[in-house]
Write a protein that binds this DNA or RNA. Sequence first.
DNA 1: TAGGTTTCGGACCGTTCAGTAAATAACCAT
DNA 2: ATGGTTATTTACTGAACGGTCCGAAACCTA
Lengths: 207, 207
Amino acid sequence: MARPRNFDRDHVLHAAERQFRTSGYNGTSVDDISAATGLGRGSLYGAFDGKHGVLLEAMTGYFARLAQGPRKMLEGPDEGALERLHQYLLRAVHGVPLAADVPPASDRAGAACFAAKMALEIGASDAEVKRLANDCFTVVRAAVVECVQAAQRNGDIDPDADPDDLAYLLLSVIRGADVIGAYGHSPDRLTSIAESAFALLPRPRHT
Amino acid sequence: MARPRNFDRDHVLHAAERQFRTSGYNGTSVDDISAATGLGRGSLYGAFDGKHGVLLEAMTGYFARLAQGPRKMLEGPDEGALERLHQYLLRAVHGVPLAADVPPASDRAGAACFAAKMALEIGASDAEVKRLANDCFTVVRAAVVECVQAAQRNGDIDPDADPDDLAYLLLSVIRGADVIGAYGHSPDRLTSIAESAFALLPRPRHT
DNA sequence: TAGGTTTCGGACCGTTCAGTAAATAACCAT
DNA sequence: ATGGTTATTTACTGAACGGTCCGAAACCTA
């Protein structure tokens, strides 16, 4: 009955996300989004709700990706949980990829966690963004907690350690590595940070 | 011979820094700076060099503060170095205070490290800001490295551990805690992260 | 007190911003 | 084919942007 829309919604949101990750929220104009997505201004206001609406939807898509990516990587049998955690750490410090087919950290600018970047830039004055960013954090944290508990059940991590505390600490390291990457430090250095964090995980008491 | 300037340069830079930390760089207009500092636009362009010049000078001032604050806190005899590191961690996760007389983390918005925030927002497209931010990081890192080495000499940290790696890791935790603070988590949580990081520091082999 | 020099503050400039409105194009059901 | 419905594009609006300029004010020297 009506004209079908001519663009792929997810493709547009990905392009917008890349732009936001590169230039920040206030550093991105609607024209920038328009140029990056190929969509006219009017279409942007029709399909989303202006610049802020695009951001919220892009972050929601990012959240959905996070809810699957790290989860798939961390879930599994107790046996091997520690090594899965290890691999996750090594990958996570290099940033969150824009999409599955994009190599992580292909450009440092857009490597840092999208949610974290937006939360730092405008989270203080934008409760919705802050909440979404925290949701992103929470979903990853839950996956890490589970993996830590699995490793504990398998006898690879000190059972007396608090899995929650450990997860907060590891995620803090990952977020911090994002920042250090933004300073211009090499990927090798970030890998080294991940290895150090992993090496210090509390092992069971006995040898 | 000429009219003396009527404002305190450092006071203006502090006010500008607070504004930048609260609203971000692109989120702060020259009028905002003008209102926050009480200075007219013309004066801002005379004394500094526009918005960007104000940012650079504010960051330079921040750097100078960093070069002294943590240093004073971390320097000292080998004996007690570990406890100084402990105290530093506990304080650092709650953010970098705007000035000595301002309680740290009086407002979460402005608590996060100024240099880190600017580096994340515009560092990718502003080499000078990126370099300044990295300078801030480097000076703190040097102080932490020294303190770790002191603790090692005193037998409080495993002498086989690489002080550089350890410093990177600890600073990564601190920067990450900034981000988690921006998510809205409570100061208690940040304290807990600091304690966890401290507890995992590698102790010497023997009991 | 008069002159020279610098700061101060607000008015002004061209540009760019986010958002809107209206005209056009594409599609499907009939 | 045609009419109704929606997508798309473009031109436009008022506000806000960063930056400049200039008259007025403040100060020191002489």
